[in-house]
Nucleic acid binder design. Structure first.
Lengths: 231, 231
DNA sequence: ACCTGAACACCGTTCAAGT
DNA sequence: ACCTGAACACCGTTCAAGT
């Protein structure tokens, strides 16, 4: 008779890791509102209480899931390139992760003090240092990049939520028309571009903003006067 | 006998406006989670169902409240100054409104397509135009500023939520120590500044970031090459 | 030790019933 | 027309009870 020390290790044994993976699957397919204790328990073929036995709360589960996704980004940092390229790849990495998992963007915008984000903050900061930003300005400069990233993250998450509910283009057109109703803004050339909100290239737009900020950083650090007003 | 055409106009008559004002009061004092149908009904001395008779849904109520706060900002735009000053006062106006009402920041980060924000977007865009930004770049440039604003907004809202729950400084110190645990980062000068997260000057930091972006915009528009990479 | 699922304390929203 | 508040369909979380 075989020695029975396998201890009934069923292939579907519950674990924190398995719960997190199942949660990410639901989040990707159904969004954050789709992840409920009950839907998660059902997908794992278990009782709702079992989840709390492995993860403390729904919030902690969400944090763990976000941390995992962001950790994958920081793990793949190429350190051999220039500081600018490092910052670009770091920022783009998080951006692309958010595109793949929009709920990550919403969560990061909501809880920016997450350990994963702190790591990105510090990585960016060290690159800025070798870029020539003086030490006193490091904090505010890195914060600027991170704020921009989080702003875009939240907007992207919102955009996905929006398109999940209604037709995105129709919604935004209606919003613009509503706005035009109580304003004389046909002479505003921006209005003609606003509909681009519906079908523009998110990624290219993100890069443009990133380049603007990087330009601002280099011109200010070169000038050596980060705190004086521009112009 | 007096003619009875006053139609029993009690001073505490319910109206959409009165509901929104009461909601703002609760949001300011107790945060977004403090605003429930029941708490709002109680503060108005009415039944929970009465609110839905006037405002449709909780989300719509929140949107209306945010719209009102932001509208106050756009209403006070000084148009006689330089474009840069206009943009600064616009950005600072929203920032200060968010400081006064942190829940506005959370809501704007969550639903950035709100009519109020679209107005700010267009106002900024027209200022950028007179600043010399070419028409094709207007959209992405205005978006950059708005993304930054929304990122800061979300972070500020999160920070307030955080300090409501636990001691902010202790929490962040613990987060940094936790991070230091699995990293050799004592040679990172940024770490020494990270604790500034706890008690730094939000407003000055926001301004610094704003100036960085404005510098980036001017240098790029002057160079006339907004889409080429920097350096 | 791990899992179950009924029960609890909420939540937004609805709606028959009142005035 | 406006308001009431019980009722409904959820939600996250707990916990006695099972294995």
């Amino acid at each position: 008779m075989e020695e029975a020390r396998t201890k009934a290790r069923r292939s579907d044994a519950l674990s924190k890791d398995r719960i997190v993976r199942a949660a990410i699957e639901i989040l990707d397919s159904s969004g954050e509102s789709g992840l409920t204790t009950r839907s998660l328990a059902a997908s794992l073929h278990t009782g709702s209480g079992a989840i709390f036995h492995h993860v403390g709360s729904r919030d902690q589960l969400l944090r763990t899931a976000v941390g995992g996704v962001v950790a994958d980004v920081t793990a793949g940092i190429a350190t051999e390139t220039t500081p600018q390229e490092s910052i670009r790849s770091l920022m783009m990495g998080v951006f692309d992760a958010i595109r793949a998992h929009p709920w990550v963007g919403a969560q990061l915008a909501r809880e920016p003090w997450q350990a994963a984000l702190l790591e990105i903050f510090l990585e960016i900061g060290s690159r800025l240092q070798t870029l020539g930003v003086v030490e006193v300005d490091l904090f505010d400069t890195a914060s600027t990049l991170l704020s921009y990233l989080l702003g875009v993250a939240g907007q992207h998450a919102a955009g996905v939520t929006l398109s999940r509910q209604t037709d995105r283009k129709a919604f935004l057109s209606a919003a613009v028309e509503d706005w035009l109703g109580h304003r004389e803004a046909l002479n505003n050339p921006l209005v003609r571009h606003v509909t681009r909100l519906a079908d523009h290239d998110d990624r290219a737009q993100f890069i443009t903003g990133l380049e603007i900020i990087l330009d601002g950083i280099t011109v200010r650090s070169g000038r050596g006067a980060l705190h004086s007003p521009s112009i």
